[in-house]
């Protein structure tokens, strides 16, 4: 019955539709191949022995897979230390951003005050602020405050970079919750903070997960600020450590590809476990370029 209706609606253009479908499939397959190729090439290169990395023409697969690149990266470079640094910075940043943005989202969605609309709209511009415009003055401010080459410098910068998108997302989620819900809690005698954290937070869990994932990953891959504000092994993040495989004269491609795999594994794990939140984040605007 449905098929007949569709046939009536769309007409009988079987052949054209069939050809169109084939084109669509071919296009999709090419796009998927292109999307996955660099990740596959990275993994394949990371297990190649050095002698096989540098053959021309290059071969796709190796007959002698080896983990020597990985053991070099794990035991002879600063990658493990940087991994800990990045993880530490990303966790602190995520926690702090979440709390600050929850409070701000609560303020924007539950109170009417002068400049509410203007301030929340101006956050939009924060989300689009070019990092390069801020780089030089921030460098001067941070050096004046003796913050260059510390954990704090990365944590502060990343919190500020992520706050606009986090506040916008959480405000949108909180506005979707009826005010009666937390007002009932207030009447029952809880204070505003416990109304926020005990009544509202459980209701907007999807928004919170989305914000946490994006904040964590944005911090994990942040490059330009970390690159200019830190330089010692003690505080270096993974992005910078990876960049340093590209030396002035010699490039350790095998090591670099193994390090790239090490950096990508946590990201891909989070992505596979929570992919619906990634899509939610994109469609609800919780992203920054």
């Amino acid at each position: 019955m449905l098929k007949e209706r569709q046939k009536y609606l769309y007409g009988n253009k079987g052949v054209v539709k069939y050809l169109g479908n084939i084109c669509a499939y071919v296009f999709l397959v090419i796009c998927i191949a292109a999307a996955l190729f660099p990740a596959i090439w990275m993994i394949l290169s990371s297990v190649k022995p050095t002698s096989e990395l540098f053959v021309s023409p290059p071969r796709f697969f190796t007959e002698l897979p080896t983990f020597s690149n990985f053991s070099r990266v794990l035991f002879e470079t600063s990658i493990p230390r940087s991994f800990i640094n990045s993880f530490f910075i990303a966790v602190i940043t995520t926690g702090a951003t979440l709390i600050i943005s929850l409070l701000a989202g609560y303020g924007f969605s539950r109170f009417e005050f002068k400049g509410n609309k203007t301030l929340s709209a101006s956050l939009l511009f924060g989300q689009m602020m070019p990092a390069i415009v801020l780089l030089l003055p921030l460098y001067k401010i941070y050096s004046r405050l003796n913050l260059i080459d510390t954990y704090q410098v990365n944590i502060i910068s990343n919190i500020a970079l992520n706050i606009p998108m986090a506040v916008m997302t959480l405000t949108a989620f909180l506005s979707g919750v009826p005010k009666e819900l937390d007002e009932a809690g207030l009447i029952d005698g809880c204070n505003r903070l416990s109304a926020l954290f005990q009544i509202l937070v459980p209701v907007i869990t999807p928004g919170i997960v989305t914000v946490c994932i994006y904040t964590f990953l944005n911090t994990w891959e942040e490059f330009i600020f970390a690159f200019n504000f830190t330089n010692s092994v003690k505080y270096k993040t993974l992005s910078i450590a990876l960049k340093e495989f590209k030396g002035q004269f010699v490039i350790d491609w095998g090591g670099m590809m193994s390090a790239a795999v090490v950096i990508s594994v946590p990201v891909l794990l989070i992505f596979l476990l929570c992919n619906k939140y990634f899509i939610k984040g994109i469609t609800s605007g919780a992203v920054k370029g």
């Binding site: 999307a35 990740a39 490059f223 990876l242 950096i263 992505f271």
Partner: peptide
């Protein structure tokens, strides 16, 4: 996958 991989990687 391209959207998720860190830019530096």
């Amino acid at each position: 996958v391209p959207w998720v991989l860190p830019s530096v990687v």
